[in-house]
Design a protein around this nucleic acid. Structure first.
Lengths: 241, 241
DNA sequence: CACAAGCAGATTGTCGACAATCTAACAAGA
DNA sequence: TCTTGTTAGATTGTCGACAATCTGCTTGTG
């Protein structure tokens, strides 16, 4: 009998679709940091009741991209330079661990998959689809976490990747400039397919540091501008759109 | 003007209380792995409607200790030996990172706090309160993650700690035997207060490996037993008024 | 006996309405 | 002017009921 890998049935609940819609809106920057999510308005726009919408929002709160204050509202998380710094420094540690665990598990399927994802990044870059470029780049980087055969690591990475996607998207929206060169990940891919694990780990750190510097610059700009109202002070209430 | 640090007002929503109740029930093992959570029954027992209960369950799903299948139900996560292995290997990495970041930030308040938490563990041990012992031990270990000044790391640790607490609780319930010696964490505490960071990191790994071996043995037993009737324990509870 | 179709009960998903709470504007008094 | 009390409006939190879906049993047929 042929071995067929059926993909899971699509989630057929409104809640799941709402989660996907909201997440996309947040991660692409359509919903800005600090912005309040009005339940009534969103539920009317989506033509659903508030119940599944609220459940979806609870999920995204736990996912770390929304924050909720009882009787006040649910808001898109604020992005500070420190948040970005924290996320990146942890990401380095996770990358190093993921490479170490993935290394002995690499096989032909791994090499094929990394090429496939790399190609996806390059295509998105050629098409100047910045949103998709960020998405595919993160999927490329996520491969080592998927391959490491550690469910907790994968889960952790996915949470982190959400934030990184948001940070990059905000960065891109802020400075509406062309994206990095097409071969930005060339060395990374080659090292992952090579035989020097330490070199791959080292490059992962350095490679990340590059984009990181740009992001930090953006974040610092954010904080200077935001110094009038919102900020580290959690009591600050962001005004709705 | 005197500088008073008011603690945040307690969450006064039913949802928050339900989350706390359910989490406690799961982490102490009162709700067993694989068990199904019947919304109607629980909502009646808690005297709340299903809406806040469902929202609470959504949070716990994202927190990783419940799992949901649309139109089928929400279940306490299953615990496999691999899950425990995964959690622990990642925990080692996080510990090493946390110690590195915490190290230069240690001050008198840190030393006081570590003593305080250590004392709490010892007291729980003396009182033979195993549940509280697990809780306090995890809080002791959590200090380096709280002190590392990295919100993403802390968040990650807290998710991990939830699972660890659940694993330990299950382990304790399975073998109803006395808890480890009172001075189990003595060396750990001393090293964190000392001056050799590498030694502290090394010990964190080894110290963890100890409990880990016991947990793995427990988990392997679980899987052998679970092979015949894994999953929902349909214990028909006597419907008391 | 094996097996597919269909029905009944239970459970989850969703809806619309009501209650609790917060915010902002305004008036009264020192 | 500043503070305090009050009120109206808007928004979030919660409830009870209905719709959609799943599960297990029964029934009929070969």
């Amino acid at each position: 009998m042929a071995k067929l890998d059926f993909s899971p049935i699509a989630d057929t609940t409104r809640r799941a679709e709402i989660v996907a819609l909201l997440r996309r809106a947040i991660l692409t920057g359509q919903l800005e940091p600090g912005q309040k999510l009005n339940e009534l308005r969103i539920s009317e726009q989506m033509r659903v009741s508030r119940a599944p919408l609220r459940e979806a929002m609870r999920e995204l709160v736990q996912e770390g991209i929304l924050t909720s204050i009882p009787y006040a509202g649910t808001f898109v998380i604020d992005v500070t330079a420190k948040d970005i710094d924290d996320a990146y420094s942890l990401n380095k540690v996770l990358d190093e661990f993921a490479i170490e665990r993935t290394w002995p598990l690499r096989d032909q399927r791994f090499f094929d998959e990394i090429d496939r994802r790399h190609a996806a990044v390059k295509q998105a870059t050629r098409e100047l689809d910045t949103t998709r470029q960020i998405e595919t780049a993160l999927q490329l980087h996520g491969l080592i976490h998927e391959w490491a055969d550690n469910s907790v690591l994968l889960e952790t990475w996915q949470r982190l990747a959400s934030r990184l996607q948001m940070y990059f998207a905000l960065h891109q929206r802020a400075r509406n400039e062309p994206v990095p060169a097409e071969d930005a990940h060339e060395t990374y891919v080659q090292l992952l397919q090579g035989s020097d694990m330490r070199a791959a780990q080292r490059h992962a750190k350095e490679h990340i540091d590059l984009d990181f510097e740009e992001l930090l610059a953006y974040a610092r700009g954010l904080e200077e501008r935001g110094s009038k109202g919102a900020g580290a002070d959690r009591s600050g209430r962001p005004e709705g759109g």
